[in-house]
Write a protein that binds this DNA or RNA. Structure first.
Length: 936
RNA sequence: GCCCGGAUGGUGGAACUGGUAGACACGCAGGACUUAAAAUCCUGUUCCCGUUGAGGGAGUGCGGGUUCGAUUCCCGCUCCGGGCACCA
């Protein structure tokens, strides 16, 4: 007997292509279901075993939904703009589109190997001008709209201009960057450049000078979520704050809707919390503090306006615009040296040391509007220019950081909240009773906050305000390999939309920034300047193309619009989105924002793009290290077996990663290099050709195993193609699912795969006997067989609905073992189910199962078997009987089906009573499970 | 520091809304087949005591609690993983 997955799978692959089995149509009477994967960036390294994890899960679900009679959209594409292709181009001169296309072809080959049911006819590539034409078009829509806070939606900037012409901006309630009031008359007299500047304050895609994350090494600006610990996420280079003129998207206009929308979607609570924190809504008030010797006022935001009587100083961020203006001559030196100090501190330094207290006194005083007290104004970098107003009223009696600051610099501290009645409460808990606070005295905090705000508003010194931590998204990159902005400027710098789309990237032969620090596109001189206009030379960031790609799949070949109304009205939104949790605040926020914008424009019918999101965990790898003595001995490198290290007390060792192929029993405690492995290692690393290897008494060089990333630099990459060659696609897919719960991170370990391989062979042997004779018959299945089938249907159903694919595999194994036990040879009852997990498993057979009759129906996806409770009949079930909590005996009852269990218990009660031997029964508790409880 | 998760055999992991803990698989041990090995198949496998056969006791990170009954619920810890981090 012989199960040859390779042959079988090849036949099916061909069949799928020739018959366009997975082609999905937009017009169907069936209900729609949209299963989406996060599309990959096609890197040069190809796929490793970790990548397909989520794709396999979503593929199972897509197949499941097809069998249930849905018209399923299940596409795949490529997020193809990005830094690696550009860096590769800088190194090799190969144009990014060339290397990207090579990588895409390689990815496609690998993906095809995995048996997915993608409709490849719908694939997208974000770097294809046919695609980014529409990314640019949507950008222009953002550019051409502003956010009207009165109607709570995006509206045309042309309408806003009309308002300006008629009445200025006095009545305009719009999301904007800067408040400057002007009249209709003033508007009419502004120059085109001034108008352009003002409109930029309102546009949803706009230009502004702001502090950005500048990475010198990469020569570009990075988004906040591309910076980790003050270093660039890609490459790990230092990132500094730098003022630059940049494009940005006004995502803050949608902050409240992005927050509210979370209540209507099915994401994990953890992920929703992450997004909520990122949006960071806080309610409070803005208050204006007059300065003692200056016309200007300091605007602060606080969540605790009730503590205003406890303000003993104010702090401005070092970058605050008033700093130089208000600093007195005596304090000038202090302030300037502090500015020099804080300016020299990188983001990273500041984060590394949050404990140390630094700051400088400006010499200026502000006036507390509530009690007229003079309060000193300081600067310190614990106040951030990017949050709130970049200035705070400091209440050392309440806020921990303010208190540290006050103690350090000897500033007064006034207690204003009495929390003695609330044990363990912190000031942020907003509990306690107001003291030392004039008219607020005796109030509880929540009440005092309300009272303070109404007083502030009555005095016209501020107002209640909701503040968000969310920042506008920086949308400029000084790179080549991204979407060019369809924007041009006239000689006065007035911006115009470029409507002839796509605006294609010009060809370059050098992709580096210019010597004077301009973005690479500046090298295409003709492209940048046509005599009348100059072009924008920044390009869009990676999240541009990925913010709407799922909509393009609905109508991928449309040349006149990004997607047709009919297609989006049919497919509507993504029912299931599967991908990694690392995109929790980046891609997911941006695409939700774009979607809401498009909803405002009537382009899409739903408020949210993704109904349900499932995060798959990371597949980790095993990293194997050798111990290398840091100091050579006698001019030779020395490797020491892990169990011989105690002979080298006081010596220091380096950890040298070794290719896992050379290691015996890799991933276990006792993994080691044998003599052959050592030879392979030497051949692989000729620099260690004459090294000494101190092995243990068994001649083994024990290695150190760690769980970590799968990565080329740890030499632990396992290519799915290799696994598939050995075990087949079905086996690979099932094993990946069998490894553990989808959302958990877990290490890849090839060893266990033989269990799944055995299962598939066993399953195969339900079709054939030892002489490879066909066993399947058309006879009706027996009751016993039907019971196994319907139990399996029930379990598998539940498993898939719960995304519990590891138990799903287990339940297939149970069913197969049972069928094997009863030597079921009449019909392969698992046939319709198994293709969910193992799409090739219906196995090629005698005349293709009567010339595709049987198999055809399976692949037409129209017959998911309903589970039928009546086949699960039990003859008798033994129930333990519990008396006063002590298990006493087994009573046997006949039951029919789960729903009737309780009645059956009732019937059996007389039996129990008899059995209890005449003792009075006080209470009988019937649990519709397994136990009968009797209290005497 | 704050916010989320999590802890079950030698290993990965099951256990529905509280109801026979350890499904399924790996590994290991023994056996069958074989001249032999590999492959395959069968049996056993939570731990401890006992063992011819039984049988008994303990047990889901630790300490308490609720309950006839707790891996599951509550309180207090320990450890591990992930995310955020001077957010006023």
């Amino acid at each position: 007997m012989d199960y040859q997955p390779g042959e079988i799978e090849e036949i099916w692959r061909k069949y799928w292509v020739e018959n366009e089995v997975y082609k999905t149509l937009n017009d169907s009477s069936k209900p729609k279901y949209y299963v989406l994967d996060m599309f990959p960036y096609p890197s040069g390294a190809g796929l490793h075993v970790g990548h397909p994890l989520g794709y396999i899960a979503s593929d199972i679900f897509a197949r499941y939904k097809r069998l249930q009679g849905y018209n399923v959209l299940h596409p795949m594409g490529y997020d193809a703009f990005g830094l690696p292709a550009e860096q590769y181009a800088i190194q090799t001169g190969v144009h990014p589109s060339v290397s990207t296309n090579q990588n895409i072809n390689f990815y496609r080959k690998q993906l095809d190997n995995l048996g997915f049911s993608f409709d490849w006819d719908r694939t997208v590539n974000t770097s294809d001008p046919k695609y980014y034409k529409w990314t640019q078009a949507i950008f222009l829509k953002l550019f051409g709209h502003y956010y009207n806070n009165s109607t709570n939606k995006a509206e045309s900037i042309d309408d806003l201009i009309l308002v300006f012409q008629n009445e200025g901006n006095i009545n305009v309630h719009a999301a904007n960057t800067q408040d400057t009031v002007f009249s209709a008359n003033e508007w009419m007299n502004f120059s085109p450049a001034q108008k352009d500047e003002i409109l930029m304050n309102y546009r949803l895609a706009y230009r502004k000078v702001g502090f950005v994350n500048w990475c010198e090494e990469l020569g570009t600006v990075l988004a906040n979520d591309e910076v980790k610990d003050g270093l660039s996420e890609r490459g790990g280079y230092p990132v500094v704050k730098k003022p630059m003129r940049q494009w940005a998207l006004r995502i803050t206009a949608y902050a409240e809707r992005l927050l509210q929308g979370l209540d209507s979607v099915d994401f994990s609570e953890a992920l929703k919390t992450q997004q909520r924190n990122w949006i960071g809504k806080s309610e409070g008030a803005k208050i204006f503090f007059k300065l003692k010797d200056d016309e200007d006022v300091i605007e602060v935001f606080t969540t605790r306006p009730d503590t205003v009587f406890g303000v003993t100083f104010m702090v401005l961020a070092p970058e605050h615009e008033l700093v130089s203006q208000i600093t007195t001559t005596e304090q000038k030196e202090d302030v300037e040296s502090y500015l020099a100090y804080s300016g020299s501190r990188s983001e990273r330094d500041r984060m590394a040391d949050v404990k140390s207290v630094t700051g400088a006194f400006t010499g200026a005083y502000a006036i507390n509007p509530f009690n007229g007290e003079s309060i000193p104004v300081w600067i310190a970098d614990y106040v951030l220019i990017g949050y709130g107003t970049g200035a705070i009223m400091a209440v050392p009696g309440g806020d921990e950081r303010d208190e540290r600051f006050a103690r350090h610099f000897g500033i007064d501290i006034i207690q204003v909240v009495d929390q003695s009645a609330y044990k363990g409460a912190s000031i942020s808990d907003k509990v306690g009773e107001m003291i030392n606070s004039d008219f607020l005295n005796g109030m509880v905090v929540t009440e005092a906050i309300k009272m303070a705000i109404s007083k502030i508003e009555a005095l016209k010194i501020g107002q209640g305000k909701v503040n968000y931590r969310l920042r506008d998204a920086n949308f400029s990159r000084q790179r080549y390999w991204g979407e060019p902005f369809p924007i041009k400027y006239d000689k006065d710098g007035v911006s115009f939309a470029e409507t002839d789309l796509p605006l294609e990237l010009p060809l370059l032969n050098n992709y580096k920034p210019t010597s004077d620090g301009k973005a690479p596109l500046a090298r295409a001189a003709d492209w940048c300047n046509d005599g009348l206009y100059t072009r924008e030379i920044d390009t869009m960031p990676g999240f541009a193309g990925s913010s709407w790609y799922f909509l393009r799949y609905m109508d991928p070949h449309n040349n006149s619009e990004p997607f047709s109304k009919e297609s989006v009205n049919y497919w509507k939104d993504v029912d299931l989105y599967v991908g990694g949790a690392e995109h929790a605040v980046g891609h997911l926020m941006y695409s939700r924002f774009w979607h809401k914008f498009m909803y405002d424009l009537g382009m899409v019918p739903t408020r949210e793009p993704y109904k349900k999101l499932v995060n798959q965990g990371m597949l980790q790898g095993v990293i194997e290290f050798l111990y290398l003595l840091k100091e050579k001995q006698g001019g030779k490198s020395v490797f020491v077996s892990a169990d011989e290290l105690n002979n080298y007390d006081g010596e220091e060792f380096a950890h040298i990663p070794v290719h896992i192929d050379y290691v015996t029993d890799y991933g276990t405690e006792n993994s080691y290099l044998n003599s052959e492995g050592i030879e392979q290692f030497k051949k692989w690393r000729p620099d260690y050709d004459n090294a000494l290897f101190i092995t243990n008494k068994n001649g083994q060089l024990i290695t150190k195993s760690e769980i970590g990333k799968i990565s080329k630099r740890y030499f632990n990459v396992v290519n799915p193609d290799d696994v598939i060659r050995e075990y087949g696609t079905d086996c690979f897919r099932m094993y990946e699912m069998f490894l553990g719960p989808l959302k958990d991170s877990k290490p890849w370990d090839t060893k266990g795969i033989v269990g799944v391989s055995k299962f598939l062979r066993k399953f195969w042997s339900l079709f054939y006997d030892q002489d490879k004779k066909w066993l399947l018959t058309d006879n009706n299945p027996s009751g016993e067989e039907l019971k196994i089938l319907h139990t399996a249907i029930k379990k598998v159903n539940q498993d898939i609905e719960n995304f519990s694919f590891n138990t799903c595999v287990a339940h297939f194994m149970v069913a197969t073992n049972e069928l094997k036990k009863i030597k079921c040879a009449k019909i392969n009852v698992l046939k319709p189910l198994i293709i969910l997990m193992a799409p090739f498993a219906p196995f090629i057979t005698e005349q293709l199962w009567h010339d595709m009759g049987e198999m055809g129906s399976v692949h037409n996806y129209s017959n998911y078997p309903e589970h039928d409770e009546k086949y699960l009949v039990e003859d008798t079930i033994d129930y333990p009987v519990c008396i006063n909590g002590k298990k006493r005996a087994i009573a046997t009852f006949e039951i029919n089906a789960t729903k009737q269990v309780i009645e059956e218990y009732a019937l059996g009660l007389e039996e129990i009573k008899k059995w209890i031997d005449g003792r009075p029964v006080r209470k009988v508790i019937i649990v519709p499970k397994r136990m009968v409880n009797i209290v005497i």
